[in-house]
């Protein structure tokens, strides 16, 4: 397992994801650029979240799920037998659709992940840095001991982002991180993502096409195969190309809102 100095943050090769006999995602080949934001778009039920969750092996918790093909991080297939999913998730963090802080204090929400991962430095410093990194510090610095549930939805989501960056991952997966938030909170999350991409690679699943166009550098368009109902990536390119002169007719229909 020699770590290749890959130019890509993560790649998939002929990746198919199964739930029992059902092939939810089929033959995906993606090369995700480092320190860029890549959006995955497409109609509901086409396997966007399934694909996203495959990157940090969250699908492992569905007992019948398995994958074919490879996901390569630094040239190492994450689905090799000897790969530890716990390690994978430390390297590839995740922010979920609905904010899900732990029922602990704001401080503990961030410190917990660092602690279980063997962080040895100054915890106060790490908490402050992470909260600053998530643009939340100024709002919560006086109430770090309060329950995270006391925060607003948008603040909770930024806390979840702070929690993710506290363990210093390389990649952050975001599963419709703003879909449960109001427009102002959404805007703040989007601004934050622009800050974060200086240090991290971000992959975001979104339903909102304007959002994909606004924030992402690259976009992957997913669709269902008519016959098998499996999802796949039909087009992957720079975002401006996808939204202005896509090669695939279906992409054009979808991004211009003409799709079913």
């Amino acid at each position: 397992m020699q770590p290749q100095n890959s130019q890509y943050a993560i790649e998939t090769r002929d990746l198919s994801i199964f739930y029992g006999p059902f092939e939810a995602v089929k033959d995906v080949n993606l090369k995700i650029e480092k320190q860029k934001i890549t959006a995955i778009i497409g109609p509901s039920g086409c396997g966007k979240s399934t694909l996203l969750r495959a990157f940090n092996r969250m699908n492992d918790f569905v007992p019948t799920s398995y994958v074919k093909g490879e996901i390569l991080l630094h040239g190492v297939n994450l689905y090799n037998k000897e790969i530890d999913p716990v390690e994978v998730r430390r390297k590839i963090g995740m922010v979920f659709q609905k904010p899900n802080p732990f029922p602990k204090s704001i401080y503990e929400n961030i410190a917990w992940g660092a602690r279980i991962n063997g962080y040895k430095g100054n915890m106060d410093e790490l908490v402050e840095q992470s909260l600053r990194g998530a643009a939340l510090w100024d709002e919560v610095k006086d109430k770090l001991k309060q329950s995270a549930y006391a925060l607003s939805g948008g603040q909770q989501q930024r806390l979840c982002i702070a929690r993710a960056i506290a363990v210093q991952p390389e990649i952050i997966l975001m599963d419709e991180p703003a879909s449960a938030l109001d427009p102002i909170s959404t805007l703040r999350i989007e601004e934050l993502m622009q800050e974060l991409k200086k240090n991290y690679t971000i992959i975001i699943v979104t339903h909102n096409m304007q959002q994909a166009a606004r924030v992402s550098d690259y976009t992957a368009m997913m669709m269902l195969y008519e016959d098998t109902r499996s999802g796949t990536v039909i087009e992957y390119d720079k975002t401006e190309i996808i939204f202005t002169r896509p090669k695939d007719k279906r992409t054009e229909d979808y991004v211009t809102g003409r799709f079913g």
Binding site: N56, M58, F61, V86, E87, R89, R90, G93, M94, F96, K98, N100, P101, F102, P103, W112, G113, I116, N117, C160, R163, A164, V167
Partner: peptide, 20 residues
């Protein structure tokens, strides 16, 4: 969602169940 949050931070099943 709490379970997922814990695992996504790289927790082992023991850490997720007893600490979260």
């Amino acid at each position: 969602s709490l379970r997922e949050a814990a695992y996504a931070m790289g927790a082992t099943p023991f850490e997720a169940s007893t600490q979260v």
